[in-house]
Design a protein around this nucleic acid. Structure first.
Length: 857
RNA sequence: GCCCGAGUGGCGGAAUUGGUAGACGCAGCGGACUUAAAAUCCGUUGGCCGCAAGGCCGUGGGGGUUCAAGUCCCCCCUUGGGCACCA
């Protein structure tokens, strides 16, 4: 019996306290608390079939330590968890096995929940959410309707990545180096009808909003680069012999005099008119070849530029010169105006092209005396203008705005801003996603809808959203919010339709409906048309939403997960606001984090939310590599499962070691030996707690112990605040080493250590807290306060340096004056030996720390 | 190619503002306890020279600023990440 007590039986301890927390609702977040709130959010996982691997919990442990620490500091803490459960793998599995994705998803979620619970997080499980629940995706659809109503959704034919193996369309960001991100299959271009969100309308707001965010710099930079704002001018060039103008965008209007040719993209609408008859064959061949190239060929690989002269000439508005117009695929139709003025002297790309086709290269930014670097072309920096008529001699940068206003005066140009950001292709031709709540009707029925009072009319955008199908133009009507959720229908076959459409397109009883223009209600068309006036024939939108949709707003739903009438109760949103801490992988730097900012900002503009930004403080945990230093992967066989680690060492050791591995943001390898180290530390703590004969009543009487104790309180507190958990753990190890070393210590001292340890190793801490006579739960105990006055020793050590090298040290009273320290240093035998034959030229004293004698000779 | 970040013992890392480099842990070595092992504890561990006292060198490489540099500046190397014809 006594023997058993001394063993650190983590398995039963962890089971005991996990059950306790669940039974007592220890970590329930109160909606109507007087306390200040603290909201710690993890990027929620996609529950894959493989289960959790050791990398997943890293961020969760970090946020959990913060959550438990903040609770101890008196905050009302919310630390929730949920499932981003729509997505491709469950659908792929369904295609292979016929198992409904909801079945797979449920099993995977159950397994993930079990694994996460086994690590002992301070999660309020009453707030668990799942993006595939219709009570959740009702509101995802609701947000879409709002976007639709505000004209931020439209439908367009877009060239998209089609993956024959996955039989699915992929977004740009899901294609890496010409292969699908999932499964690494080859992909090709196809034109398909897509629902698109006008995120570009939010480019400026998304850019500006970044300034106030406490985010890693690199992530902000990535978003900035992704949005890609540039300022310049749009300039119109007359076309010789044509009554049309060619408009270009340039960031360098100051180099207008150096434009020696023009380029239009192969898809440019004016190209047909520009081509003279002798060039028609050449140009047509070129354009066709360009159309066959994928974006990859046109950008990444094709460093070699190519193009064809159209035979036409433009007239340079600043000097009346005629310059040739070329077509070349290094100019993209999707950016700016799809046409450029080429200035080979001051643009690398134009320079390369001009050299290849022997087009004139004319310098307009000149080198001045001693400016070597400007004499080599192409040169794209600042400088003084030359060969530029009236502008000669001016600073090019200053000249930009002058030229723009001169162009404006002449009516041939204007200042302009462009963004690299493209609209967001929001549709997926898949089954396992949120159905997009739109139906398609004829023009006539659309006009009727506009004239029919009711919720459908109220939800319509100002301009119609249309799409051409089989030569007919169809008009989009919303399935109004009163009809949400629009649930996924059952389907027999999960294979996408061969056309690239989603499997939903094959279920005609769902697809073809009678739609009521007044109420938005619908009835399958294989039933009789209902009585009444406003029933029209309609076809449902078959696309579903991308996986990003559900994660765009989940941080809001945790605040009010069961609300059937509102996305979130405004009172709850007002109290909880946005997360105080958000942690997740850096791989989401631009996609999830930009899309979520877009939706959140939009909801703010709509008056639904009180904060414009969703994630004020963001942190990226670093990858945990396999023990061999490689990325953990099944194929390499270096994956470590938390289940195995918990079996062998317990959840507390797992938690502690994930944090002890190194800085939270660093990429670092797993180590089996390393976890034994922290496990040993926990055993040591366990042993010390049970050695009650060492525990004394009253205050700590050993000065050294008292000092280390308060140093530890201070350092652990600071380290948690700074997310430097590895340092916090080191310091607790120093304290336990001290307690182990001395013969006895105050019981309060070890109780304090247990409190500091509680956020890191909560199960063991609860157990030991109880055994030391504390009242459960330790999670409710206030955080220990360091007494800083104890950290100042009466005696201090001051080191002596000669020429910056350590040569001795001395003990001094803490309020010693400079002169006595310096004379003591000079009197030190070793210091003297290094001063011999030298002259002291400078004496430096850093109070309480060191003396440095600079000597020469 | 461009833009960021990182390089510290055998290993993971510490040194937050320029002020004793290598805390803490792992691994190693020596020892205690034990019939033995496990567990635990104690000591030791950057390199070179030296019997020792001690000295010299040392934070990717080279230069610089400073009384003092892992920390600041310049150049270079290696490595991780992001972007990549956006005019």
């Amino acid at each position: 019996m006594a023997e058993n007590q001394k063993i650190y039986d983590f398995t039963s301890i962890e089971k005991k306290w996990q059950e306790y927390w669940e039974r007592e609702n220890t970590f329930r977040a109160e909606d109507d608390s007087e306390k200040a709130k603290y909201y710690a959010l993890d990027m929620f996982p996609y529950p894959s079939g493989a289960g959790l691997h050791i990398g997943h919990p890293e961020g969760y442990v970090a946020s959990d330590i913060l959550a438990r620490y903040k609770k101890a500091c008196g905050f009302n803490v919310l630390h929730p968890m949920g499932w981003d459960a729509f997505g491709l793998p469950a659908e792929q599995y369904a295609i292979k096995t016929g198992t409904h994705p909801s079945v797979t998803t449920r099993a995977n979620v159950d397994n993930f929940r079990r694994q996460i619970k086994s690590i002992g997080f301070a999660i309020d499980w009453d707030r668990e959410i799942n993006t595939t629940d219709s009570i959740y995706y009702k509101w995802t659809q609701w947000i879409f309707l709002k976007l639709f109503q505000r004209g931020l959704a439209y439908v367009d034919e877009k060239p998209v990545w089609w993956c024959p193996n996955l039989r699915a369309v992929l977004a740009n960001e899901e294609v890496v180096d010409g292969k699908s991100e999932v499964g690494n299959h080859p992909v090709e271009r196809r034109n398909l009808r897509q629902v698109v969100l006008r995120i570009t309308a939010y480019a400026e707001k998304l850019l500006e909003g970044l300034d106030d965010l406490d985010w890693p710099d690199s992530t902000k930079r990535q978003q900035k680069a992704w949005i890609g704002k540039s300022e310049g001018a749009q300039v119109q060039f007359e076309i010789a012999g044509l009554d049309e103008k060619l408009e270009v965008y340039t960031t360098r209007p100051d180099t207008l005099f150096g434009a020696t040719y023009m380029v239009v993209a192969p898809e440019h609408p004016l190209l047909k008119k520009l081509v003279i008859s002798e060039k028609e064959n050449d140009v047509q061949t070129y354009v066709e070849a360009a159309a066959k190239k994928s974006d990859l060929d046109r950008t990444d690989l094709a460093k070699d530029k190519s193009g064809v002269f159209t035979g036409s000439y433009c007239i340079n508005p600043v000097n009346g010169e005629q310059i040739p117009v070329w077509v070349a695929d290094y100019v993209l139709i999707s950016y700016g105006t799809g046409a450029i003025m080429a200035v080979p002297a001051h643009d690398e790309r134009d320079h390369e092209f001009a050299e290849k086709y022997q087009i004139e290269i004319r310098r307009v930014i000149g080198p001045q005396d001693g400016e070597e670097e400007k004499s080599k072309l192409p040169y794209s920096g600042p400088g003084v203008m030359v060969n530029s008529g009236e502008y000669d001699g001016m600073e090019a940068i200053a000249c930009k705005s002058k030229i723009i206003s001169d162009l404006e005066e002449k009516g041939v140009g204007k200042g302009a801003i462009n963004y690299k950001l493209r609209d967001w292709i929001f549709s997926r031709q898949r089954y396992w996603g949120e159905p997009i709540p739109l139906v398609w009707v004829s023009k006539e029925d659309y006009e009727n809808a506009k004239n029919t009072k009711g919720i459908v009319k109220e939800s319509l955008p100002h301009d119609p959203v249309t799409s051409d199908k089989d030569g007919e133009t169809l008009y989009a009507l919303p399935v109004p919010s009163s009809e949400l959720p629009l649930k996924l229908p059952e389907v027999e076959n999960y294979q996408p339709a061969g056309t690239g459409e989603s499997p939903l397109a094959t279920i005609s009883e769902w697809l073809d409906i009678w739609f009521n223009l007044e109420t938005g209600k619908s009835v399958s068309r294989n039933q009789v048309k209902p009585d009444g006036d406003n029933w029209v024939s309609a076809t449902r939108e078959t696309n579903t939403m991308p996986q990003w949709a559900g994660s765009c707003w989940y941080h809001l739903r945790y605040l009010d997960p069961q609300n059937e009438d509102q996305l979130v109760d405004p009172a709850k949103e007002a109290y909880w606001g946005s997360p105080d801490f958000y942690i997740g992988g850096a791989e989401h730097a631009v996609l999830h984090l930009l899309y979520a900012r877009f939706w959140h900002r939009f909801l703010y503009d709509e008056g639904v939310l009180k904060n414009p930004e969703p994630y004020r403080k963001l942190f990226h945990q670093g990858l945990i590599l396999g023990e061999d230093g490689n990325k953990m992967s099944k194929s390499v066989g270096n994956v470590v499962s938390p289940d195995v680690v918990i079996d062998a060492y317990g959840a507390d050791s797992l938690r502690l070691f994930e944090m002890f591995l190194g800085p939270l943001e660093a990429v670092k390898p797993w180590s089996e030996k390393g976890i034994e180290g922290v496990h040993r530390f926990l055993k040591k703590v366990h042993r010390e707690c049970l050695q009650t004969e060492k525990h004394l009543q009253g205050e700590e009487s050993n000065k050294e112990t008292l000092k280390v104790l308060h140093e530890t309180i201070l350092k652990v507190t600071e380290a948690i605040e700074d997310l430097r958990f590895n340092v916090a753990i080191s310091q607790m190890m120093i304290l336990i080493n001290q307690l182990q070393k001395v013969e006895s210590y105050s019981k309060e001292s070890i109780k304090t250590l247990i409190q500091l340890l509680a956020p890191f190793a909560p199960h063991l801490s609860e157990e030991l807290w109880e055994s030391l006579g504390g009242k459960p739960s330790i999670a409710n105990e206030p955080w220990p306060q360091a007494r800083k006055e104890l950290l100042v020793a009466d005696e201090i050590t001051i080191v002596f340096q000669v020429n910056g090298k350590l040569r001795g040290e001395g003990q001094f009273p803490k309020d010693v004056d400079k002169d006595s320290v310096i004379s003591a240093a000079k009197a030190d035998a070793k210091v003297q030996s290094f001063l011999e034959g030298k002259e002291i030229v400078k004496e430096i004293y850093v109070p309480g720390k060191l003396v440095n004698l600079a000597a020469k000779g």
